[in-house]
Amino acid sequence: MEKAAREPAVRPSKYDRLVTAARAVPPATTIVVHPCDPTSLGGAVEAAELGMIVPILVGPAQKIRAAAEAGGLDIAPYRIVDVPHSHAAAAKAVELIHQGAGELLMKGSLHTDELMKEVTASGTGLRTARRISHVFVMDVPTYPETLFVTDAAINIFPDLEAKRDIVQNAIDLYTQIGLGTPRVAILSAVETVTPKIPSTIEAAALCKMADRGQITGGVVDGPLAFDNAIDPEAVKIKGIKSEVAGRAQILVVPDLEAGNMLAKNLTFLAKADAAGIVLGARVPIVLTSRADSVRSRLASCAVAVLYANARRRAAALPEV
């Protein structure tokens, strides 16, 4: 008898814990912006069916229904807010957040810049006192930790003040979704401070800001080269004494170019999954790409839902 063909093993995911935790908290009402293709609409519907979100679909109603039909999706249970095009969908989504109609934003099939233009608009957007930044929550098969990479999508060349907020946003996310106290590596090309590489000076300044309480909630060290941040053997060889080196959980990159290349290298060469979320606005924003795996899409939702739930609980605490 011929042996039955073996199905390929499904790799265990560090995201499983996040999705399980998100399913255990109340679902977050989520404004889904222009979900006009089966992929983006399907991600929202799947998260809703798992009990993580209650979606409000904002976009041209006819296109949303056509996407549902093309993807074999049942959207009858969900509210649709009909607007004529993607720009109007982004503006309406921001308006709904101002009205208190949702706790999260989720990007659909519109371009990220189109959504973020409305989010960051002066006077009408969703800015807060904190700088808006992006975090990739990465499951790298060869690394034991869930790895945060920031900022690889929003801030192109952040200055020291912006980097302080970028670091704090990532620490707050890490702690509030239940992962504990993070070890934060400020990346550069080398692990020593030199005026020839400005990012090493900013890394040293960020560490001193953490010492002085201007950054809280994490253990911060830098500058660290990438190998010294994630490889214990490289740390041992170089004789670096650090609580962070060799086992970092948050990687803070010098600029968007470096971060984008790092995240994509991990995704395409190390076969990592990358979930994306924007922080620092009035609500968390789920950014997904058509290239994202189903696992990454659900992880993005899970992280945002856990963060929204932590904010919900903090808002309910009585003032002391």
Rank of each mutant, 00 (worst) to 15 (best):
T112N: 05
E69G: 14
T267V: 11
S86N: 11
D151A: 12
A129F: 03
A275P: 15
A76Y: 01
P26G: 09
E49L: 10
S109C: 02
E7I: 14
R295Q: 14
V283M: 11
I277M: 15
Y15H: 12
V244K: 10
I75T: 14
E257I: 02
T142Y: 09
V32Q: 08
K208P: 01
V190H: 04
T150R: 10
G123Y: 03
V10W: 02
A308M: 02
I240V: 09
I80G: 09
V167R: 12
Q176W: 10
G108E: 03
S133H: 11
N265V: 04
A316N: 09
R65H: 11
T142E: 13
A28G: 03
R127F: 05
R295S: 14
Q62G: 09
G100N: 01
A204F: 01
M116G: 01
P84G: 07
A5Y: 07
D16H: 12
G246F: 08
K14W: 00
I201S: 06
A203Y: 04
A204E: 07
P144Q: 10
S199A: 06
G180P: 14
M116N: 03
K238E: 03
P55T: 00
Y143F: 15
Q176C: 13
P232T: 03
E243K: 15
L298Q: 12
N309G: 02
D113W: 00
D231W: 00
V294Y: 04
V244M: 07
L73C: 12
L317W: 01
H111V: 01
F157P: 02
V305H: 12
G180A: 08
S300T: 00
D139F: 11
R17N: 08
V283G: 14
P318T: 11
A121T: 08
K117W: 02
S40H: 10
R313T: 05
A225W: 04
A274V: 15
N260A: 06
G100S: 08
D82R: 06
L160E: 13
Y15Q: 05
D211Q: 11
I171C: 07
L147P: 09
